[in-house]
Amino acid sequence: MTLRDKSLPAGDKDGEGRPAHVGFLLIPDFALLAYASAVEPLRAANRLSGRDLYHWSHVSIDGGPATASNGVSIRADHAVGTETRLDYVIVCAGGNPAIFQHPQTFAWLRHLARHRVRLGGVSGGPYILARANVLDGYRFTIHWEHAPAFLEDYPDLDLRRSLYEIDRDRLTSSGGTAPLDMMHAVIAREHGSELALAVSEWFLQTHVREGAGPQRMPLRERLGISHAPLLRVVGRMEQSLENPISREELARTANVSLRQLERLFRHHLGRSLGEHYLGLRLDRARDLLRQTSLSVLETALACGFASASHFSRGYRRRFGHPPRAEREKPVR
């Protein structure tokens, strides 16, 4: 296992012999799996080493219990802004972090950054860090579901489509189980690869993933097909939603006639080329409507539609309601 970045400061190198204190900032609707994948390796490191290497506490925006997206609540030890010594603060967020509004949280994160507390985020947590203006000049990652909306809001930040990133005093993970791999890197850097490997083995990780690894399954597995030319076409579609590629160009990508390409879509995916491409664009539009403040027209243009009316008709046919109604629906 190769560490992503050797510059992450070690947790217990200050000569005080104390455990590193990790604060988990739990944003309402945070992703429980991503949080658990970040905190459990710390518990395992303590148990397997027989020492208190890490101490952790929970922070909520008001000091009350924080509720995850699945309804589970975790009691908070502190409220945002409470004076306590922290070595790390890891922001756990899910749901729709783009609409999170809490100036005290953003101010507290900036305060921590000025005092050189190591800041992290898992799943949607990096969105909160960006809103606090503490990611400028750092490379980082975020869950793929949040990436399109994030790029609309922060096109100039150094977003990577990786499993995790550790860049100096910032550590971010795309969520899901990827924090297990990120915390493996942290533990290895601070306490050695032997302990890190023991922690990973304890959690039945038969393979520790590199930070630069992909977030999503290969298209072959996601679609359940193995036809290479068709996979090339779908891959180009997914990468060109704002400026759709012509049907003729897609056929040239597969090196087949347009008629043959249509037959391939029908045979392998059960829908026409146009239906598949339209579905991809509408799915992206739904993500943008849920996670950004873009207008319906701006969303339509960002997903390759020439007019809001054309977009709205297609949206209603696919999802059963107009685009404007999407923002009225709760996201879980």
Rank of each mutant, 00 (worst) to 15 (best):
D156L: 15
A300G: 10
A76I: 07
S240E: 11
E194M: 07
G320H: 02
S293G: 13
P323T: 00
L278F: 13
S49F: 03
G63R: 03
A34N: 01
P148C: 15
A196I: 06
G120R: 02
L32R: 07
S37E: 00
H191V: 00
I166R: 07
R252C: 05
F265D: 09
D14Y: 03
V208G: 00
G137H: 01
P155S: 11
S7M: 15
N133Y: 05
P9L: 09
R259E: 14
G63P: 03
D77C: 02
Q239F: 10
I61A: 15
F319W: 02
D153C: 10
R284E: 05
S307E: 03
D62C: 06
L250R: 07
S49D: 04
G95Q: 08
L289K: 03
Q260A: 13
A31Q: 07
R168S: 10
A113C: 07
N243H: 09
L157Y: 01
Q104W: 14
S162A: 11
A325E: 08
A66V: 02
H55M: 09
Q260C: 14
V72E: 06
T105H: 08
L301S: 04
G17C: 06
R286E: 10
S57C: 11
T67R: 12
I225T: 03
H207T: 09
A79T: 14
L157H: 01
G120D: 00
P65F: 14
H268I: 02
L231N: 02
N255P: 12
S240M: 04
P323K: 01
A66E: 05
T177Q: 00
L42H: 11
R317Q: 06
V296K: 08
S200D: 08
L269S: 09
L25S: 01
M237T: 09
H227V: 08
A107E: 12
S162D: 14
Y277H: 09
P155M: 11
V72D: 14
A251D: 04
S173D: 02
L204V: 04
E275M: 05
D181H: 10
Q205D: 14
H227W: 13
P103T: 14
F305T: 01
L294M: 14
G94R: 01
V72F: 06
G17S: 13
S73D: 07
D169H: 13
D52P: 06
L163V: 07
R313K: 13
L3Q: 01
K329W: 02
H268C: 12
H191S: 08
S295W: 09
A132D: 07
G224E: 12
K6F: 05
F311R: 00
M182S: 05
F140W: 10
E165Q: 13
F30H: 01
G94S: 04
A285W: 01
G211E: 05
A31Y: 07
I187M: 07
P19V: 11
L109G: 00
D52L: 12
S173G: 10
L258F: 15
T292L: 03
F319Y: 08
S257F: 03
